[in-house]
Simulated assay, not measured.
Amino acid sequence: MFEKQSSVTSVPAPTQEILINMDGTTVQILSTEGFSLYGFKAVQSTQQGGMPLVWFTREEFSPVTHLEWTSSMAAYTSFDDIAARRRVRADFSADIACGQVLHVTDNGIGEVFHGNAPHAVSIRNMTKDRFTCGISEKVHGEMLPICAFPLHGVSMEVIAPIQKVLLVFTNERLSPGTAITALRNQSVLVDLSSVNQRQLIYHIDKGWSWDRGSWASCHPPNSNLVPVLIEVPSQVSGACGVARSLVGSGVQALL
Rank of each mutant, 00 (worst) to 15 (best):
V121Y: 03
K164Q: 15
Q44Y: 04
T9D: 15
V236G: 09
H140M: 10
P12D: 15
R58K: 12
T178W: 14
I162A: 04
S10D: 11
S214W: 12
P150A: 14
S31F: 12
M156H: 00
Q16W: 15
T57K: 14
M22R: 00
V88D: 05
Q16T: 15
K138Q: 12
W69S: 08
H119G: 12
S122A: 13
S122H: 02
V112Q: 00
A74T: 02
I135M: 02
S237I: 10
E59D: 10
C147Q: 05
R130M: 14
S237V: 10
L189F: 08
P227N: 11
V232D: 06
V188G: 04
C218F: 05
P145G: 06
Q48P: 00
T105C: 10
A179I: 11
S223I: 02
L37C: 03
P118N: 07
S6Q: 08
I109A: 13
E3S: 03
R212W: 03
E111G: 11
G141Q: 03
I135E: 00
F35E: 02
A179F: 14
V64R: 10
G207E: 02
A83Q: 10
Q235W: 15
P233G: 10
P150F: 02
R58N: 06
E33T: 05
S209D: 03
M51D: 01
S78T: 07
G248W: 14
V195D: 04
P145S: 07
D106T: 11
S194C: 09
E142W: 07
F169P: 03
Q44P: 00
R198Y: 15
M126P: 04
H203Q: 07
G177H: 08
